[in-house]
C-alpha cells in the first residue's frame, strides 16, 4: 500500500512530467499541443539504436492556474536526461513564440510555466540541441519583452544543467526545492576535465551544497524556495506570476549590478559555508542539515531577497 501522506501530497521530485502538470494546473484544464498520439518523435535516436518517446520528453500546452490562462512546458527528466533536442526544442520554441504572438489578444496567457528537468543538450543530436537552447533563450526573452512573466520551476531528478541552467537564469522568477539543482557545467563534466580534487561528482553532499536549491536561493540563483511537494510548487507558481519584475533596461542594469556585487563579495570562496559565514549566517555548516521549515524561517528572518532578474 502507498502511504496516505504520499497519495495526498505527491513529491515533485518523484512525479513524472505529466503528473507535475496535472498537479500544477486547475483540474481538467490542460490542453496538450502535439500530444503523444501525434507521434512527433526524434528522427535521430533510431540511428543510435535507442527507443524514442512519443512526446520526445517535452510536454507543451495551455491550461489554467487559479482560473487564469497559462502556457506550460514540462521536460521529462527521466527520458534521455530531459535533454534539449531537435523535436523537443522545437516544441518549446514554438509554444514560446505562440505565447508572444497571442499577447494582448483573447488567447493571451497570464504567464508561462517552465518545468525544467534537464541535463542540457542531447548528445545524440547535439547541433540541433545547441540551436534549440539558443532559440529557447531568444524566444523566452521575447515572451518577457511582451510583458508576460516566465516562471521556472526546478526540483526534478535531472536538475537544470547545461543549456537548462542558462535558460533558467533568463526567466522572470525561479522557484526551487531542496532537491532542485541549477548549474551550467555538471559535476561529472567538471570532474572529467579538472579532476576529482577540483570537484568530486560522487560526493552528493558537495554537489547539493554547491548546486542545490538552498544554496541557489541564498545566493539569488533562485527567488522562491518551496517544500518538495507538488502543491507547494503550485502555490509558488501562482504567487510569483504576479511578483515578476518588468523586463526593462533598468531591471537588466540592476541584475548586472547584483551579479557584479555577488562576484566581488564571494568570488574567492571555495565552498558555500564560507559564503554563508561571510554573509553573516549564524551557523553556516548547518544550512544543508536543518529541515525545510527551519530553512524557510531562516530565509524570512534574514529577509533574504534578490530583486533584480
Amino acid at each position: 500500500m502507498i502511504p496516505e501522506e504520499i497519495v495526498r501530497s505527491p513529491s515533485w521530485y518523484e512525479s513524472s512530467a505529466r503528473n507535475r502538470i496535472t498537479g500544477l494546473l486547475d483540474a481538467e484544464t490542460f490542453r496538450e499541443i502535439l500530444g503523444p498520439a501525434e507521434r512527433v518523435m526524434s528522427p535521430h535516436l533510431e540511428l543510435f539504436d535507442l527507443p524514442p518517446a512519443f512526446d520526445d520528453g517535452v510536454i507543451v500546452g495551455r491550461g489554467q492556474l487559479d482560473g487564469k490562462p497559462v502556457a506550460i512546458i514540462a521536460q521529462e527528466g527521466q527520458f534521455m536526461g530531459g535533454t534539449f533536442a531537435e523535436v523537443s526544442g522545437a516544441k518549446i520554441v514554438g509554444l514560446l513564440r505562440a505565447v508572444t504572438a497571442s499577447a494582448g489578444t483573447p488567447d493571451g496567457v497570464s504567464a508561462v510555466l517552465l518545468l525544467l528537468d534537464t541535463g542540457g543538450v542531447r548528445l545524440q543530436e547535439a547541433n540541433a540541441g545547441e540551436l534549440a537552447v539558443s532559440e529557447t533563450v531568444r524566444a523566452l526573452l521575447g515572451v518577457r519583452a511582451a510583458g508576460i512573466p516566465v516562471v521556472a520551476l526546478v526540483g526534478g531528478r535531472a536538475g537544470a544543467f547545461g543549456g537548462g541552467g542558462i535558460v533558467t537564469a533568463c526567466c522572470s522568477h525561479v522557484v526551487i526545492s531542496e532537491q532542485g539543482r541549477i548549474s551550467v557545467t555538471g559535476p561529472e563534466v567538471i570532474e572529467t576535465n579538472k579532476g576529482a580534487e577540483e570537484f568530486d561528482s560522487r560526493d552528493r553532499a558537495l554537489v547539493w551544497r554547491i548546486t542545490g536549491g538552498r544554496s541557489r536561493v541564498l545566493l539569488g540563483g533562485a527567488d522562491s524556495y518551496v517544500k518538495g511537494d507538488v502543491a507547494s510548487f503550485r502555490a509558488a507558481a501562482a504567487r510569483s506570476r504576479n511578483a515578476a519584475p518588468p523586463f526593462t533596461l533598468e531591471t537588466m542594469a540592476a541584475e548586472q549590478d547584483r551579479l557584479e556585487k555577488r562576484l566581488s563579495s564571494y568570488g574567492d570562496c571555495r565552498d558555500t559555508p564560507e559564503i554563508w559565514a561571510r554573509a553573516g549566517l549564524a551557523d553556516p555548516a548547518s544550512v544543508p542539515d536543518i529541515d525545510d521549515d527551519a530553512f524557510l524561517a531562516l530565509l524570512s528572518e534574514r529577509e533574504i531577497k534578490h530583486d533584480a532578474r
Binding site: 513524472s16 503523444p36 498520439a37 527507443p51 524514442p52 512519443f54 527521466q78 534521455m80
Partner: peptide, 18 residues
C-alpha cells in the same frame, strides 16, 4: 479514446493506448 502511461526511463517503458 487514448491514454499514455509510463516514461522511457532506464528499466521502464511508456505505453500509448488507442
Amino acid at each position: 479514446r487514448q491514454a499514455i502511461v509510463g516514461v522511457v526511463a532506464s528499466g521502464n517503458l511508456e505505453i500509448l493506448l488507442e
